[in-house]
């Protein structure tokens, strides 16, 4: 126990705050308090309530039969093959969409960064899909992929004219991913553009003088220097993609094995009125998002402060 005694108490090293600083701190607390109360009301309360509801068997259609069941809902969900199938579909969608968005988004970012003519128009047109509501994008792509009156089948030489994209799991997931990628790539390219702007022109010039090729400059100079921005972009998009709902709701309504975890949760709460089970799924969804965020931050050692140039 000697080492605890030898360690200096932190208070002892800290300079004693002046009266003025104490008063300012107090005022600061008071000013922040209302916002804090509102935050607790609108975020902490629903979250705690969902946690509480997830421990009961509670259907809106039979409110009087509500009963406390402990962790039963979690056990049912975690041992259900449907839950794990939706989890696999969701993770699959997340990986595929983020991968393609990253590549296409980076190309767009380069174009937006380097373009010298009609800069405003080009930048704006790249960003248009992001300005479109996801539900609208979902409908547009659903019509495009429709086997009876869509145009995708006419454009693709290797599919039959009346191929039904929404008849099987993988074609349907492909259509959903295309809509998702089309809609959110601009967001990715915006984040990457910000990172690209941080890369110092001097370094690129220096590499050029040293005789580095375009590819060498890209992989040795540009990408390493915008690593933080790339990781933040991946983190944001991965968390977004994991919660995918709109496109699935519009395009397949969860048919042919395309349900995501969000969609499964929606069905329990909104369609089945199973508030207890739905809350348990929401809590699991929330935990999954936390785990993904943790993994990305730890695995890729993302420094969020560095990305915001605070570090």
């Amino acid at each position: 126990m000697t080492h605890t005694v030898t360690a200096p108490a932190p208070e002892a090293q800290r300079k004693k705050a002046s009266d003025r600083a104490v008063a300012e701190n107090k005022l600061g607390m008071k000013l922040v308090a209302p916002a804090l109360v509102v935050m607790l009301l609108v975020t902490a309360f629903p979250m705690l309530q969902a946690l509480w509801l997830s421990l009961s068997n509670y259907a809106l259609t039979a409110p009087d039969d509500r009963s406390f069941v402990g962790l039963q809902n979690y056990v049912t969900a975690l041992t259900d093959p449907l839950f794990w199938r939706t989890m696999a579909v969701t993770v699959g969608i997340m990986i595929v969409t983020v991968f393609f968005e990253l590549i296409i988004g980076f190309v767009f970012a380069l174009v937006m960064h380097r373009v010298i003519f009609a800069r405003g128009i080009i930048r704006t047109s790249i960003l248009i899909p992001y300005g479109i509501i996801t539900v609208v994008s979902g409908f547009a792509w659903q019509f495009a992929f429709s086997g009876t009156n869509g145009f995708v089948n006419l454009w693709l030489p290797f599919v039959e004219g009346n191929f039904n994209w929404f008849g099987e799991q993988f074609p349907a997931l492909f259509a959903i991913c295309v809509s998702e990628i089309w809609k959110t790539t601009p967001f990715m390219s915006l984040l990457l553009l910000a990172g690209l702007a941080q890369v110092s022109e001097d370094m690129i010039e220096a590499a050029k003088v040293d005789g580095a090729t375009w590819w060498q400059r890209l992989f040795r100079v540009i990408l390493p220097n915008m690593r933080a921005a790339i990781m933040v972009a991946i983190l944001f998009r991965a968390l977004d993609a994991f919660r995918i709902f709109d496109n699935i709701f519009v395009m397949t309504a969860g048919a042919v094995g395309t349900e995501s975890v969000s969609f499964l949760t929606y069905r329990q709460v909104i369609e089945q009125f199973q508030i207890g089970m739905g809350s348990a799924l929401s809590v699991l969804l929330f935990l999954s998002v936390l785990v993904i965020a943790f993994l990305i931050v730890k695995l890729f050692r993302v420094d969020l402060a560095a990305a915001r140039q605070e570090g």
Partner: peptide
């Protein structure tokens, strides 16, 4: 019909 698995009243 080719859209059997997504066929509705109107299709």
């Amino acid at each position: 019909q080719s859209d059997l698995s997504v066929s509705r009243e109107g299709t």
